[in-house]
Design a protein around this nucleic acid. Structure first.
Length: 188
DNA sequence: ATTAGGATCTTCT
DNA sequence: GAAGATCCTAATG
């Protein structure tokens, strides 16, 4: 469960889909090329929120996992809004059904009202604006795993985990990487 | 139901 | 200068 306070109220989400990134050893990880201004939080202590900006308009959230310096993190890909539904709807007018409110990493961040200002927040402190809490346990046999989405490297590593049959899990669309206009096709 | 294209800007090469 | 851990809308089958 992830819970975020905001000016319009508190929204809580039960996570249904996540993706693991294994620090510097993982070619798909933002930490792969070492520390930078953007990924600094990843190299810090675990239990903190790493928020980054993608595609010129979206924010995505990770929970830092490994020990300090390890730079491992889990991307929060989707969840079900379990409280503050009305606030989440206002933030996500494009969502048709409530199950779409946090169905996708950028949607989840928007529903929770998270952006650059939430980067680095300690998720395990009761006084934080954003908090990670234990929810009801998911049985092992309800957890599925498969390839990560949208990554250009190490796509075959099955580190996306989700709850089987959950309607809030993002739809899997293996998009071919966009090729720049006018670029030559790769040589076979 | 599925697909294609556009929006938009930070980050690192 | 180019690509990027995405989403939305419109068009088509």
């Amino acid at each position: 469960m992830l819970e975020a306070d905001g000016p319009q109220g508190t929204v809580a989400v039960r996570l249904s889909e996540v993706e693991a990134y294994a620090g510097r050893a993982d070619p798909a990880s933002h930490a792969y090329r070492g520390p930078t201004a953007r990924n600094a939080v990843m190299f810090g202590p675990p239990g903190h929120l790493y928020v980054y900006f993608v595609y010129g308009m979206h924010w995505c959230c990770n929970v830092v996992c490994g020990p300090e310096g390890d730079a491992s993190a889990v991307l929060l890909r989707a969840g079900a809004v379990v409280s503050g539904v009305q606030t989440a709807r206002m933030r996500r007018p494009a969502a048709r059904a409530d199950s779409d409110l946090a169905r996708g990493p950028a949607r989840l961040a928007t529903a929770l009202g998270l952006d650059r200002a939430a980067n680095g927040v300690d998720l395990l402190s009761a006084g934080s604006r954003v908090r990670l809490r234990a929810g009801s346990r998911v049985p092992d046999d309800a957890v599925r795993r498969g390839p990560r989405i949208g990554v250009a490297a190490a796509a075959e590593v099955p580190w996306r985990l989700w709850i089987a049959g959950d309607s809030t899990v993002s739809p899997y669309r293996p998009r071919l990487r966009r090729v720049a206009a006018g670029a030559r096709p790769p040589l076979a």
